[in-house]
Simulated scan of single mutants.
Amino acid sequence: MRLPTAPALPRCSLDIGRSPTSEAELNAMRAAAWHRQGVAVIPIDEITDPWLRQALTNEANRRWGRRQGGPAHGR
């Protein structure tokens, strides 16, 4: 039992027990990012052209640093 004057318990939308985001939901978020903000989200492993994949990997590494843990293409 809680006292009526007791502060409310902290709430967070992250602890509601949601299931993981599905692939369809991820694709919908990627499409929305493209249409609303001009941001393209393409998993690097889905890029089949080796030159383009490496160019994008190089740019991402330059901007944000190397990935921790993920596969290293070409190494």
Rank of each mutant, 00 (worst) to 15 (best):
N61H: 10
E59P: 00
W34M: 08
G70I: 04
V41I: 15
R75D: 08
L14M: 09
R11L: 11
L52S: 01
E23L: 14
D45L: 06
M29R: 14
A33D: 09
E46A: 13
L14D: 07
T57H: 01
R67A: 13
S19T: 15
P4F: 11
W51V: 14
H35M: 08
S22T: 15
A8Y: 11
R66H: 10
R63K: 08
A28V: 03
L56Q: 02
G70K: 14
W51A: 09
A8L: 12
P20T: 12
Q54F: 03
A31D: 14
P10H: 07
R18V: 02
P7W: 05
P7D: 09
D49W: 02
A40V: 03
N58C: 04
E25I: 04
A28P: 00
G65P: 01
W34C: 05
R75C: 01
L52N: 01
P7H: 09
Q68G: 02
A72H: 07
M1Y: 04
R30K: 13
L52H: 09
R36E: 15
P4I: 07
A72D: 06
R36P: 00
G74C: 01
C12F: 05
P7T: 12
C12V: 03
N27W: 08
E23H: 13
W51R: 10
G70L: 12
G17D: 04
A60W: 05
R30Q: 11
P4K: 14
I44F: 08
R2H: 11
Q54P: 00
A40D: 11
R67M: 07
Q37Y: 15
